Amino acid sequence: MTSCHIAEEHIQKVAIFGGTHGNELTGVFLVKHWLENGAEIQRTGLEVKPFITNPRAVKKCTRYIDCDLNRIFDLENLGKKMSEDLPYEVRRAQEINHLFGPKDSEDSYDIIFDLHNTTSNMGCTLILEDSRNNFLIQMFHYIKTSLAPLPCYVYLIEHPSLKYATTRSIAKYPVGIEVGPQPQGVLRADILDQMRKMIKHALDFIHHFNEGKEFPPCAIEVYKIIEKVDYPRDENGEIAAIIHPNLQDQDWKPLHPGDPMFLTLDGKTIPLGGDCTVYPVFVNEAAYYEKKEAFAKTTKLTLNAKSIRCCLH
């Protein structure tokens, strides 16, 4: 018999989150649709729960009410004593943790798909938090293969000092899905179709896995975050240069030392320094102006996964 890495157990509980950011409308629209008619997301033997994560922000069509829901799922915020004085999103995070967690427990949901849009030209993107997770690498390989020839990129946010504390991190297997470009507060049919297909293929993978299909060893190309880059700023902290036209919409493309990065209003080009080629992502993302992030630098690498098969009882 072929030796293989056996994944822990079959997958039982899956959640699909929309509206973690209330103005990213593809996930909101799909989740609302699936709450009314969820036939397309159901798979035999699998509990799939669509869920609106930040209903107040969705109602106002804004990213958040008090603070970013997708950055506060750490033990400090989840452990705060519940009171009306807490920011709305912290209270909501505790409610979500109660419903789908608790985080880092045996009772937490197996998989959470968190649906997002970006204003950046990132196409279909899967966000991975753990480079050693054979199950998710296999799932992402399946999704990428199923979507081809449509490109699907994998963004690895594993980093020693950049801690995200994402909404989906309460699950055993957290999956971020990011599709763009799409303006905030807008629905685009092409973007919706791409996100819908990503979810379909992900659920198909889980179904095949649960039925005992063995997935042979595989490898995927990923883009691992190195650092986030702020806009150049003046002495008052105001933005002093904008994304250069040569960099705009060039997510995932190589940016070499000396290539144009920013452009000042008086026409001066600010190039990339250093001696390493990087791959920019979230270029000129609207939501990241407040976070002082013009783009993120990534490096390209390959992740390998062992063969996996479900432990059938």
Score class of each variant (00 low, 15 high):
I6P: 08
P55T: 15
K59W: 07
G212N: 05
H159C: 06
N77H: 09
A148S: 14
G18M: 02
F205A: 02
P87V: 13
K13Y: 04
M82W: 13
G123T: 04
N236F: 07
P271S: 14
T125E: 01
N236E: 11
D259H: 06
L301D: 06
K213D: 12
A202S: 07
K297A: 09
K103L: 10
P260Y: 04
I170S: 06
I41V: 15
I112W: 03
C67P: 06
E40G: 03
H5A: 09
L247D: 00
T20S: 07
Y288P: 11
G79I: 15
C218S: 04
P183H: 05
Q194P: 08
G258M: 08
E211Y: 07
L203Q: 00
K32R: 09
G38Q: 10
H10E: 11
G258I: 06
Y88L: 15
S161M: 14
M195D: 00
H98M: 14
K292E: 07
P50W: 03
E106F: 08
I206A: 06
Y173R: 15
K228V: 08
I225G: 10
D193Y: 14
P55Y: 09
K292P: 06
L128I: 04
M198E: 00
K268V: 07
I206S: 04
A305F: 01
I111W: 01
D68L: 03
K172N: 10
G267S: 06
L272T: 08
N134D: 09
Y109F: 07
I191V: 11
P260D: 08
H208G: 07
L115A: 02
G267P: 03
I137C: 05
H256E: 12
P216Q: 06
G274D: 10
I199E: 01
K163M: 13
D259M: 11
E106D: 15
L255V: 13
E290Q: 09
I225D: 10
G22F: 07
L75K: 08
P151L: 05
F135D: 01
P183Y: 02
F215G: 02
V222L: 03
V175T: 00
C61K: 07
K228W: 15
E290R: 13
K297N: 07
E238L: 09
V179Q: 01
K292W: 07
S105Y: 08
E227W: 02
I157C: 08
D190L: 03
F17H: 05
